[in-house]
Amino acid sequence: MASSETDEEAAARWAVRLDGGPLDAADQKELDHWLAVDERRAGALLRAEAALAYLDRGRALSKGDERESGPRSARLWKPIAAAGSLAAAVALAVFLVPASRSDRIEIATAVGEIRRVPLTDGSVASVNTDSDVEIEMASDQRNIRLNNGEAWFQVAHDRTRPFLVEAGKIRVQAVGTAFSVRRTAAGAEILVTEGVVEAWALGGDGRVRIPAGNRGFVPAGRGGVKVTPAPGGVDRALAWRTGELALDGESLGFAAGELNRYNRRAIVIDDPALGREPLVGYFRVDQPEAFARAVASTLGARVRVAGETIHLER
């Protein structure tokens, strides 16, 4: 396995190889060694094998009018690597989608859908639920327009072509880094995971640099860019990339609002005091009722389901 691979990517390769038939002695020894290095790798392999079975099931149920070419491993490895951590999720779809051959594409996700898309310049865009992103690769600049929602970008380094994200009147620019932009009615929130970005608003107070591990907010109206350190909060806020909501003291009301972004079944908190209760933990974004029942048992509340609404009350 290549040293640059993540455990999920390596697990995806092993899942495809195991699906092809029994391993020979050398491959089995290599697999045993890979599993022994970290006990969490066994779980990664199970998720990858489940994802492979899920994709095969979908292929068997399809009309069969698409012709597949190339070896099975080449066709399946990338989708498995992207879907491995969410193999059992049906409501939440996370797939590695090939970018169009054109240098201009639009990525629009439905409620509950997350897409991870490789771009023609070598960058990667992860687009969150209910979002719309337009991407254009020009000769002197890479232009991204975030019309709605949220996206995280792993930007391929290219000094000759800055990577510019537009969110209304707000601009975020990078050359080679990784960051997310979430557009709201109040402005745009920026989370930087690698490198440094510059953010500003047209007609505002000028550019502000936001380094890795920090959170920036650019208001849509008047006011300057606000930057706050968030070394642990950045990774938690971006847990959506693997279909999770990570909480570390945030309120139940906040959590319900976040989960409602991913589901048509809405969580409603009937008691304001209950909504202020702090929560800690990781939760699946595509299982609102399971979340509500887990919270109810912890906080001494009860769940009442009425149609497509999940009520939490004392």
Rank of each mutant, 00 (worst) to 15 (best):
S3V: 11
S3E: 12
E5I: 01
G20H: 02
A26M: 08
Q28C: 06
A36K: 10
A42H: 14
A44R: 14
L45H: 02
L46C: 08
A51M: 13
A60S: 15
A60I: 08
G64S: 04
R67L: 12
R67A: 14
R72N: 00
L76P: 06
K78P: 09
P79Y: 00
L86F: 04
A88H: 02
A89G: 10
V94S: 05
F95S: 06
F95N: 09
L96C: 03
V97I: 14
V97C: 04
S102F: 10
S102P: 03
G112Q: 10
I114Y: 11
I114S: 11
R116C: 10
R116N: 09
G122N: 01
T129A: 04
D130W: 10
S131D: 06
M137G: 01
N143S: 09
R145L: 06
L146H: 03
L146T: 07
E150R: 11
A156D: 03
A156E: 09
A156C: 06
H157S: 05
R159H: 08
T160G: 08
F163G: 03
A167Y: 05
I170R: 01
R171M: 07
Q173H: 01
T177C: 02
V181T: 08
R182E: 12
R182W: 02
T184V: 08
A186P: 00
E189A: 14
E194K: 14
G195K: 00
V196E: 09
G203M: 09
G204D: 01
G204T: 08
D205T: 15
V208A: 15
N214Q: 12
N214I: 04
V218G: 05
D235V: 13
W240S: 11
L245E: 12
G249C: 05
L252P: 10
A255I: 00
E258M: 04
R261T: 08
R264V: 08
R265L: 06
G275K: 03
V280W: 13
V280Y: 10
Y282S: 15
Y282T: 15
V285S: 03
Q287S: 13
V295H: 10
R314P: 15
